[in-house]
């Protein structure tokens, strides 16, 4: 099962190594990891997507909490959350295919950020399914390179209490 953890860490030397090292040492796999500053100075947020069953992920959370530089761990998969990821795709684009590509990009609300004689770079943001979908469509034209940021996520402020009693 895919799960996503938000990990608030002190922005100190070596903290990324501590977190990444913990995953490899305990045999947990990271699917993606995105790090950035938060509004609070000195505190960074790591968004870590990983694959694992309930018990494994619980163990990851506990082990992360033991790191002194880790301030908070939230398992976002258990909460209503907005996930986003940004992807840049360099795709082959001959003059005759450009408009087709452009149409796809518009449908996905992406942007063309660079054009050359025989290729384009497209920027698209979304959740996992959306990014996979556009990638699949563009493969038809020939993808040269892909760069992804990894998922970032925030808890929704409004929770719908439908299935909570």
């Amino acid at each position: 099962m895919k799960q996503v953890l938000a990990v608030l860490v002190e922005n100190k030397a070596g903290v990324l190594t501590r977190v990444a090292g913990l995953f490899s040492r305990r045999g947990f796999n990271i699917d993606s990891l995105a790090v950035g500053e938060t509004v609070e100075p000195g505190i960074s947020r790591m968004t870590i997507a990983l694959e694992g069953d309930e018990a494994q992920v619980e163990q990851v959370e506990k082990q992360l909490n033991k790191l002194i530089n880790v301030l908070k761990v939230v398992n976002l998969s258990r909460e209503p959350t907005v996930f986003r990821e940004l992807m840049l795709i360099k795709v082959k684009a001959e003059p005759q295919t450009r408009s087709d590509i452009q149409q796809i990009v518009e449908t996905f609300r992406g942007k063309v950020v660079d054009v050359s004689l025989n290729s384009m770079i497209i920027e698209v943001t979304g959740n996992d399914e959306k990014l996979e979908a556009i990638k699949l469509l563009l493969e038809h034209f020939g993808i040269i390179e892909v760069a992804r940021t990894g998922r970032v996520a925030l808890l929704r402020s409004l929770k719908i209490d439908g299935d909570r009693s």
């Binding site: 030397a13 070596g14 190594t17 501590r18 090292g21 913990l22 002194i68």
Partner: peptide, 13 residues
């Protein structure tokens, strides 16, 4: 500090 990272409770440079 790199070498002892997995075998200390915490370490400092």
């Amino acid at each position: 500090t790199g070498i002892t990272l997995p075998i200390t409770k915490h370490n400092y440079l």
